[in-house]
């Protein structure tokens, strides 16, 4: 009797272990089998929110599970990244990220680092440019650089927040051109456009897509763009590279999960998201927001991109004095 009991218990335990092992495998194979929680670090209605909702609207049909998008703003992504670190790496916690998350990580305002994140896809690559007023004293970047060389600190450059992608782009350019700019931080792009138009600042780091209305009216134009090739909308604006300064620093938005997520889950998520991003609706979203189809990057390319950009942030934050 006792033997039988022992045998049964062993059998039950064995089945239990087996079942658990199987269920782990099944969980990976069946991903996703429950609701996915998706976090953004900025507030509702912003660019990242709209990007995320455009992706998830179709993704939820492809994956067949509900996706709940919540805003977890705080500390430029610090709160969201800290929360991610506490969640299991199972693919049910996904987040949208931007350059400012790298800044937050580089400034060590969160415990998360590059190695804690697996990139799933890049969805937006919004070119940045030095925008100048067409009625201002400087007609092109050469004139601005001459003035900056003659009077260091005289050229005022508008940026949205310090230690942001705007700031870094302008700083890298100034460093490469060996000039000194005075940076004027603004809390939003709108205020900065006003400052450029009124001449309060000599130029501003802006995404041309945000200000096309003013460009069409002939009030603003780009002096330099920070992408590899000239933009179609500004055929006369040189790239930084053409001027001999190898600066590429633009606004991107992408999707990530916590490191340690099983490969099968990452692949399933990444493939489904690629399917959405190559689709008609997403491509229309890019076109409506003046972004090129090259915005979309698959997981492998994007992780390589992140690996290349990440050390840059650490270096610059140190040079600018934001991290010891």
């Amino acid at each position: 009797m006792r033997k039988l009991f022992f045998g049964v218990s062993v059998a039950v335990m064995a089945i239990g272990f087996l079942a658990q092992a199987v269920s782990t495998v099944v969980a990976e194979d069946n991903y996703p089998s429950k609701q996915i929680n998706w976090y953004i670090h900025s507030s509702a209605g912003g660019g990242t929110d709209i990007f995320t909702r455009t992706v998830t609207a179709e993704l939820k049909d492809i994956l067949g599970v509900p996706i709940v998008v919540s805003s977890m703003s705080g500390g430029s992504g610090a709160r969201m990244l800290n929360y991610m670190m506490e969640q299991p790496a199972d693919g049910y916690t996904v987040f949208s990220m931007t350059n400012s998350n790298l800044a937050t990580m580089a400034r060590k305002n969160t415990t998360a680092q590059r190695a804690d994140i697996i990139g799933i896809a890049r969805g937006c690559y919004d070119p940045q440019a030095f925008m100048i007023s067409t009625k201002g004293p400087y007609k092109n970047i050469q004139e601005i650089l001459e003035e900056a060389k003659a009077n260091p600190g005289k050229i005022k450059v508008g940026i949205t927040h310090v230690a942001s992608v705007d700031h870094v782009a302008a700083y890298l350019f100034a460093k490469a051109a060996d000039v000194q700019f005075e940076y004027v931080p603004f809390t939003g792009g709108g205020e900065m456009v006003v400052a450029v138009l009124q001449g309060t600042v000599d130029m501003g780091v802006l995404n041309p897509s945000e200000v096309m209305g003013q460009v069409d009216a002939g009030n603003l134009t780009a002096a330099v763009v920070f992408v590899q090739e000239r933009l179609k909308s500004f055929p006369d604006a040189p790239t930084a590279k053409e001027l001999g300064y190898d600066v590429e620093m633009n606004t991107w938005r992408g999707i990530g999960v916590k490191a340690g997520t099983p490969d099968a889950v990452v692949k399933k998520l990444a493939d489904s998201i690629q399917q959405v991003m190559q689709g008609e609706r997403y491509q229309k979203y890019l076109a409506d927001n003046s972004m090129e189809p090259v915005s979309v990057m698959n997981a492998a390319d994007w992780n390589a991109f992140l690996d290349a950009e990440w050390p840059l942030w650490g270096e610059i934050m140190k040079e600018l004095g934001y991290v010891k």
Partner: peptide, 15 residues
């Protein structure tokens, strides 16, 4: 403003 752009109405002096 974001919605205007989404719907192809580019806000600015020419709107």
């Amino acid at each position: 403003l974001g919605a205007l752009m989404v719907h192809g109405m580019r806000p600015g002096p020419l709107l």
